[in-house]
Structures are given as C-alpha cells and as structure tokens.
Design a binder for these strands. Structure first.
Lengths: 198, 198
DNA sequence: CGTGGCATGTAAACGGTTACATGATTTA
DNA sequence: TAAATCATGTAACCGTTTACATGCCACG
C-alpha cells in the first residue's frame, strides 16, 4: 500500500492523457519531464502491473491499431484520488548530487586545465538544454489552447529556463576567470606567441 | 578496483585537510558541500575501510587528544593519484529528480491552492539556502588567504548562489501568477472583504 | 529473408538511506 | 547519576539502473 514516486509519475502521465502504453509513457516522460525527471523501463513496467493490481489504473484496449500489439492503460477514479493526495503532500528535496560542482570544488587538486574543460562541457550541455526548452516553449505558445494544464506547464518550463540560463551565465563568466587563473600556472614566463608544433 | 563516488568525495576531503575521522568527514561534507552533495554514515564508514585496504588512504593517529578515541585518516600518494585521475574524467549528470517541478507540472490535477503552497515552501527553502551560502561567502572572503583552493571554492559557491537566486526570482513571480490564477477558480464571484471566522 | 527498430518484460547488481546497536564522554 | 551528544559501526531494505531475453513488425 505504499508507493514510490514512479507510481505517481505514471498516474500523473495518465491523468493528462489516457490510453498510453508503457513504452509511450516512457517517451512522454523523457520528452516532457526530461529536464527534471526520468524513469527507466525496468521501473515502469513492473509499476504498471502493480498499479493495475491495486486498481489505480486499468488496462484499456490492447491498441493494435495499425501498429504492433501494445497494452495501454487509463486512470481509475481511485487512481485519480491517490494522485491528488500525493500532490497535496509537501514535496521532498532529494539529496543533492552534483558531480560537476564536486569536481570544480576540488579543481586545485586536478591537473591544470581540467576545471576549464569541465566548465566548457557544462556550458555545452546547458546550451543544448536551453535550446530544447526554448523549443518546447515555442511549441507550447503555438499550442495556445484552453487546456487548463497549460499554465502549470508554462510555469514549470519557466523554472527550467531560468535555471538553465542562470547556469549558462555563470558558466560564461567562470570560463573567463578560469582561463586567466589556469594560464597563470601553466605558462608562468612565456611571452612569445610562437607555437612549437610539438 | 571500481569505486563509487563516495570514495572520491572522501579522498577529496582528505586532500584538502588531513587527519580527519569519519565523523569529521561527514560534518565537513555537510557544511562545505551541503548544497550540492551529501553522504551518510552508512556509506562513509565502510568506504573508509575499503580505501585503507586498497592503500588509497592510511590510518593516521587514533587522535584521543583530549577528546574521545577516533580513528583519523590521511591520503596516500596512490590515493592522490586516484583522485586526480577521477577529477580528469568527464563529469556525469545524474538522472534528474525534482519532485517540486513534477508536482507543479501536475498542478491542475491538484486541489486549488496546492501549487501555491508548494511554491511558497520552495521559496522558503531557497531563502534559507541563499542565506547559508551568503554566510559561507562572507566567511570565505574574510578567510582571505593564499590557499590555492580558494578560487575554486569561490567559483563553486558562485554557481550555487546563481542557481539559488534564479530559483528564488522565479519563485517570487510564480507566486504572483499563481495567486491570480487560483483565486479565479476558488472565489469566482466574491467581492466582499468580510472574513467569516468559522 | 534478414535486419533493425518497436515493444515488453525480468533478474541481478548497485548505490544509498534508514534504523538500529553500542559505548564513551561531557554536562547538568 | 542521568541525559545529551560524540563517534563508530552494521544489517536490512529500497529504489533504480543495467543488461539481458524475447518476439513482433516494417522495410529493403
């Protein structure tokens, strides 16, 4: 009778669109929640079965429509109630785990230039993330419907955008700082611009 | 011969200060990395033993100095090498898990006002976080030494501050938006200001 | 007909937290 | 001497990922 969060993500997913299969739920989660949540098949399929057993979702049509056979599911009333109860509970902050920040913190211990490489990589990832989120934003604006979910989606998206932009801004300036710092230690006396071709 | 990240956090911790015990390492991690990393005793103590067995750290004086008996450890040369190698590897983004954003995304499914409460709670947590980080910043500036680690610490701190501020900014404006949205649905016709003291 | 992608599933391993057990030391 | 806190440790449990197994369908 106790549920892990995978269960609620699935209930939530089915609450906004019915008759999805495990595969489609996985896709939907990756596309829509990609920036703040993830689930693996190994988690999704067993959880779906369990939710059916508990009556929170029900098998709805093995849609073999044109495609292959795939079992789809829909939320039951009990499932909707369960989801609502969970939504009302205070959210938990999962233990922080930011490997980038950890490696940056120990930057002095690393070989020269390592921190710089990490920051560059972080910036690339954040640029990609930002592009994705901006794409979603554009689509959402065009979507422009009376769907009552939309305001919440835009809000969530807004936080994602704000965080990505803040991280990227920080990254740009950190790059400059690090370049100055680490050049100092690596080329303490060099003044000529000539590059020996190894 | 394979290591989880706990091992590297401990190696890193000992790289910046020697002769720490498991207990002290736990404290140090909570204080210094609290905003981006965490470790539990159940992870720390077994890992320390394993690192000793592998020769990456060594027991250094069971400092019973005035205090209780506690086993302290120091990095070996092999340990330092191992840490450096890990630092040079590309960092990994752990799977995102932001329960707040998940609940906000499903906001429409929740009872009216729930999203608002969550955002308020988020803002409180972020304000606390920000205060903590600003405290650390102040201390670090006062610390003002030639410690070569300091620039990296400030950089890391800077990212934490940037993210916390961005989240808080977002939170303030989201609060306004949500208040407008959710009041609409809850008090569709009310015009009087009188509050029944039910 | 064979290959590659779609779709579902399972078992094992892993990383990590939680809860618990223990004793020693300080403080009241 | 009682309570609080320091300090170390372990066992059980949990959520999750990974790797693997399988079969179907479409396409060349």
């Amino acid at each position: 009778m106790s549920h892990n969060r995978t269960a609620y993500v699935l209930l939530g997913g089915l609450s906004i669109q019915s008759n999805l299969s495990g595969y489609e739920l996985h896709q939907a989660i990756k596309e829509n929640f990609g920036s703040f949540w993830g689930e693996s098949y190994g988690q999704i399929y067993p959880t779906l079965k369990r939710l059916v057993a508990e009556g929170l979702i029900e098998a709805s049509g093995s849609a073999t429509a044109g495609k292959k056979r795939r079992q789809t599911y829909a939320l039951t009333d009990a499932g909707r109630v369960c989801l609502r109860e969970w939504l009302a509970q205070p959210f938990q902050n999962d233990p922080p785990r930011n490997e980038f920040m950890l490696k940056l913190f120990f930057g002095h211990e690393a070989a020269p230039g390592v921190a710089l490489v990490h920051v560059r990589e972080l910036n690339e990832r954040n640029r990609r993330m930002l592009a994705t989120l901006e794409g979603i934003e554009k689509m959402a604006r065009a979507y422009q419907s009376k769907d009552p979910n939309l305001p919440y989606w835009m809000l969530t998206l807004g936080l994602g955008l704000a965080l990505a932009r803040a991280a990227l801004d920080w990254g740009e300036s950190a790059l400059a700082e690090l370049a100055a710092m680490e050049v100092d230690t690596r080329e303490p006396l060099k003044t000529s611009e000539a590059e020996p071709s190894s």
